[in-house]
Amino acid sequence: MDKHHGIAAGIVKAFLWVYCSFAVFILGYILYNSFRPKKDILTNTLGSPSGFTFDNYKKLLVDDKFLRFFLNSVIILVASLLLIVIISSLTSYGIARYSFKLKKAIRVYFLIGLMFPAQLGIVPIFLLMSKLNLVDNLLSVIIVSASSISMPVFMLSNFFAKLPEEIHEAAIIDGAGEWTTFYKIMFPMASPVVFAVCITVSVQIWNQFFLPLIFLTSEKYKTVPLIIMKYTKNLFMTVDSAMAVSILSTVPILILFIIFSNRIIEGVTAGAVKG
């Protein structure tokens, strides 16, 4: 398409460049500080650095075994994300493609999860998990995270509804069952939005704090946000580790995000929609 978008677009783009540079600057600033000794950050906050050190990272990776917490977070993320994508796309498809009596009510029903502070509902879940013997087990966090499908269902059901009805009908006439139609044809077609959902849900799961705090009591099961809290609660005492842990917890997931976000931009299924 056209490469010249006009003056207005040029100004908007210039703003975007400035805005985005600021974000990169912030990340860079954290990165820069993560290599400074604590004494330097505290006593010469803005001055030129007296030296750089890898100690902050060494302390995290070797002494505090950060990788274990990272692995816990990755396990929780991957498992819950997969469950959420499967469950919520099934549910949304069910809501969007079929008409039935309680459709509106069901949509509102699936939104309720966004409307109530989780802290209040935690005791019954805790009792349930403790009966299932899942307290202090990553599975408890995975299951509860995978049940929070309000936002994915809310966003996805619109897109399934928008897919052209003819494709659905054609598939059924071709002899494909409901299930085959769903996962061979409809699901791939909605994939730009499925990816968008994946990305936003991943962020939530990656940053979630309350569930692991309650369910994962042993040090060996703790997740990245809990460890970040360890360094940010007494930010001044541990400002060096806090900077390094921010980088270690941000950069890997950012790289993953770069890989996946390209898929959205390129439009994974542009071909499928046309065909």
Partner: peptide, 21 residues
């Protein structure tokens, strides 16, 4: 057929999100 699509999500969501509320 929508029941099959709705069921897994409905059950999990109801137990772990709605009931505690």
């Amino acid at each position: 057929p929508y029941i099959f699509f709705l069921l897994p999500g409905f059950i999990l969501y109801t137990i772990f999100v709605i009931y505690p509320i």
